[in-house]
Design a protein around this nucleic acid. Structure first.
Length: 213
DNA sequence: GCGACAG
DNA sequence: ATCTTGTCGC
């Protein structure tokens, strides 16, 4: 698949990316993730009360598995199904935690950033592994972090979300800064490596996906 | 040319 | 991403 056109879309959207201090109080926080079968993508967005992390709403969506996964172009594959989920929501979140990169991306347009621009909504990218940028390993204890850099520019942080477990690659999606990322990810953790809103969305999307096999 | 490469 | 139970280590 040719990525020339997609790359041009990313370069155009890059101008709209806004990294700044989160403005409003967070009462509702969301987690978004997508599961895959041979034929479909199944998305889930869960809405949680913040900071109690009590689930108040969940919506799912389904789309055909048409667009292939290409590193650097994940958003074109997953955004359609996540938009289906979002439109069904009665409660709109103040902040969305997304399973993937934010601006820690070659063109600053990871899934979380792309989704944030389309929705004009604050988003944070929470990836389980590295895609782009230079970093050192943070200390072993929960809460420790190291910055992810591209040249001189800070584009995210490698954050230890649990003692002695592989860190998360967290980066601003849209309308938040790196400090907000650390704060809201830490406050969304329970006893696991993955923030509860994303953990829930991942589990739920996976369950729904099995029903279509 | 070689290695890296979110989900 | 996904196929999958028990098991080693903190």
């Amino acid at each position: 698949m040719k990525t020339d056109k997609l790359r041009r879309d990313q370069l155009r959207l890059r101008k709209k990316v806004c990294v700044k201090k989160l403005k409003h109080k967070v009462n509702y926080i969301a987690g978004a993730d997508v599961a895959v079968t041979s034929d479909y993508l199944i998305g889930c967005i869960g809405i949680f009360l913040f900071p109690s992390l009590e689930l108040i709403e969940q919506k799912n969506g389904r789309a055909r598995n048409n667009i292939p996964y290409i590193p650097g172009f994940l958003s074109f594959r997953e955004i359609p199904v996540l938009m289906k989920c979002y439109k069904k929501l009665k409660n709109k979140p103040d902040l969305i935690l997304v399973d993937g990169q934010g601006i820690a991306h070659p063109r600053r347009l990871g899934l979380a950033t792309h989704l944030g621009i389309i929705l004009n909504k604050p988003t944070i990218g929470c990836a389980k592994s590295h895609l782009f940028g230079d970093y050192e390993m943070p200390d072993d204890s929960k809460g420790s972090y190291a910055l992810i850099k591209d040249r001189q520019e800070t584009i995210g942080l490698v954050l230890r979300t649990k003692d002695s477990v592989r860190p998360l690659f967290v980066s601003p999606g849209h309308l938040v800064d790196a400090e907000d990322c650390h704060k809201y990810v830490m406050l969304s953790l329970t006893k696991y490596r993955i923030p509860e809103p994303i953990r829930f969305a991942h589990k739920t999307a996976g369950e729904k996906a099995r029903q279509y096999v």
